[in-house]
Amino acid sequence: MHTTTKPRPRSQLISPNYTAQNWQDLNLDPDNADEAQWQKAGEIIKDRIEGRFLKPADALIEAEADKTQGTFGFAILALDFLVIETVQGFREGRINHTGQSETLFKNFLKEWSLFKESVSVEAEQEDKARKLYLSGRCALHHSGSTDFLKVGISGTALEFSADGLIRINRTLFHQSLSQEFTSFIEAIETPGDPILRRNVKTKMNEICQK
Rank of each mutant, 00 (worst) to 15 (best):
S120R: 02
D66W: 03
T4G: 09
I45F: 06
G99A: 11
G155Y: 05
Q37G: 00
V121R: 11
S101A: 08
I188C: 12
R94E: 14
H174N: 10
F184K: 07
L13V: 03
D147T: 10
K106Q: 00
H2M: 07
E180H: 01
E186I: 01
E122T: 15
N17S: 15
L104A: 09
E92F: 00
E122M: 00
I61V: 13
T156M: 11
F90E: 12
A75S: 07
I61S: 00
S120A: 02
I168A: 04
V151A: 10
Q125R: 15
R170N: 13
G70L: 11
L196A: 13
A20S: 15
R48E: 14
G99D: 11
K110E: 15
N96Q: 07
T71P: 03
E111T: 15
S118V: 07
Q69G: 12
L28I: 14
F72K: 15
Q69K: 15
L140H: 05
I76C: 00
R198M: 02
W38M: 01
G99F: 03
F105E: 03
H2W: 08
P56F: 11
G51T: 13
T98A: 08
L158G: 14
A65H: 12
F105R: 01
F74P: 00
R130G: 09
F148Y: 14
I84N: 02
I188W: 10
R130H: 10
S101K: 04
D147G: 07
P194M: 13
C138G: 00
A187D: 15
G93I: 13
K106E: 00
D29H: 02
R94Y: 15
K46R: 06
Q37R: 00
S161K: 14
V200R: 04
I185T: 11
L172K: 11
A129V: 06
D34H: 06
Q179C: 10
G155L: 03
Q175M: 01
S118I: 05
V151L: 11
K203D: 08
D47Y: 02
A33G: 06
P191F: 13
F160M: 10
L132Y: 01
H2F: 09
A75Q: 01
S176H: 05
K128I: 04
E92M: 08
D193E: 12
A36Y: 08
A20Q: 14
G155F: 00
L54P: 01
L54V: 10
I76G: 03
F81M: 04
F81R: 00
Q100I: 04
A78G: 05
G164H: 11
A162L: 05
H97N: 12
C138D: 10
Q88P: 00
L196N: 13
I14F: 09
T68S: 13
F74I: 03
K210A: 07
I84V: 15
K6A: 15
G155K: 05
H142Y: 11
K6E: 15
I84Y: 04
V121F: 06
S178V: 08
I166Y: 08
Q88A: 09
V121C: 03
L172N: 08
L54R: 02
F105A: 06
R10D: 12
H97C: 09
T202K: 15
E102H: 06
A65V: 15
T146C: 08
F160E: 11
E85W: 02
A41G: 05
A129F: 02
Q37W: 01
N22L: 02
F148V: 13
